[in-house]
């Protein structure tokens, strides 16, 4: 079967075979590229969508979560829900909205125990270590504490009370005699549970949970806080100031405690008096 005609036929069928493969691969490739593009768009969540405790980095989470909803089922407060089609959150992944139902920070963290893949990190055993987001007092103009009212609701509902939100008294210059009690969030203790946002008494919350990457800035690695460095080093890091030495004429000295220039012979009677300045100003009299 090695006639030229047979060879021609084999060539043709091989060509058709390759063309078929190329066609299938291209069609599916186009589909894949479209999917890839779509997935890139849903990489960043809407700022109000908060992940459950232990979710960690969003990109890692999207590869680890298999969208089974077991965390949602084991959440005793119906905080968590699965993203539905049309919600602009990767489909089927768990999230919550702090303003509607915040995380109650269960001590046994049932959502994390329920996760079969470790998308919610099983190493998270102490709920105070969770970092779901960070509370930000985002609108000072509408926070009533900044108007001088004693609100302090966010401070009082905070599950890590006194640590994640503290109250800083500030002088109220308008009245001249009162104090503002300003809520201040501390990132080293805030878990991002959202109870402050849910409890905020005004129409639209002025304190909000944001994803940490939105809420937190970064100082730059070259900054050194002198007082911190001093604490770390156990003492001052710069050389001590030397006391200035005055080269004064005989009979004069300098008092560092506040008297300044002194005449040692001040008590002896002299035609010029005991004030050194008198001698200098004599000509102007």
């Amino acid at each position: 079967m090695n006639t030229p005609a047979a060879q021609q036929l084999a060539r043709q069928s091989r060509r058709r075979f390759l063309a078929d493969i190329a066609r299938s691969a291209s069609a599916v490739g186009i589909l894949g590229l479209g999917l890839g593009l779509y997935s890139r768009q849903s990489r960043s969540l809407p700022a109000t969508a908060i992940r459950p405790p232990g979710a960690g980095d969003e990109i890692d989470f999207q590869s680890a979560c298999i969208r089974c909803g077991l965390c949602v089922r084991d959440c005793p407060y119906d905080t968590l829900k699965l993203a539905q089609p049309g919600e602009n959150i990767p489909l089927g992944t768990p999230w919550f909205e702090a303003r509607s139902i915040p995380c109650e920070m269960c001590e046994d963290i049932p959502c994390v125990t329920a996760c079969p893949t470790g998308a919610l990190n099983p190493e998270l055993t102490h709920i105070d270590d969770a970092r779901m987001g960070l509370a930000v007092l985002i609108d000072q103009e509408n926070c009533i504490a900044f108007q001088g009212l004693r609100c302090e609701v966010c401070y009082n509902v905070c599950p890590v009370r006194g640590k994640a939100i503290s109250l800083t008294p500030q002088h109220n210059e308008r009245t001249g005699k009162h104090a503002f009690f300003i809520p201040v969030v501390h990132s080293e203790a805030c878990t991002g549970c959202g109870k402050c946002e849910a409890a905020c008494v005004v129409e639209k919350a002025t304190i909000k949970i944001l994803p940490i990457h939105l809420a937190q800035g970064e100082m730059g690695s070259f900054y050194r806080l002198g007082w911190e460095e001093k604490k770390k080093a156990g003492g001052s890091l710069v050389t001590k100031d030397l006391q200035h030495e005055y080269n004064l004429p005989e009979g004069q000295s300098y008092d560092y405690e506040g008297q300044g220039l002194k005449m040692d012979d001040a008590n002896e009677s002299s035609p010029f008096g005991n004030n050194a300045a008198d001698a200098l100003n004599r000509g102007f009299r």
């Binding site: 999917l35 890839g36 990489r43 089927g92």
Partner: peptide, 23 residues
């Protein structure tokens, strides 16, 4: 590095939808 197919997979979408909310 993401479960791209799950964004459009009708099989899991419909099952999950009927159990958790279809949208």
């Amino acid at each position: 590095g993401s479960l791209v197919w799950e964004a459009v997979n009708p099989v899991s979408m419909v099952n999950r939808g009927l159990v958790f909310g279809l949208g």
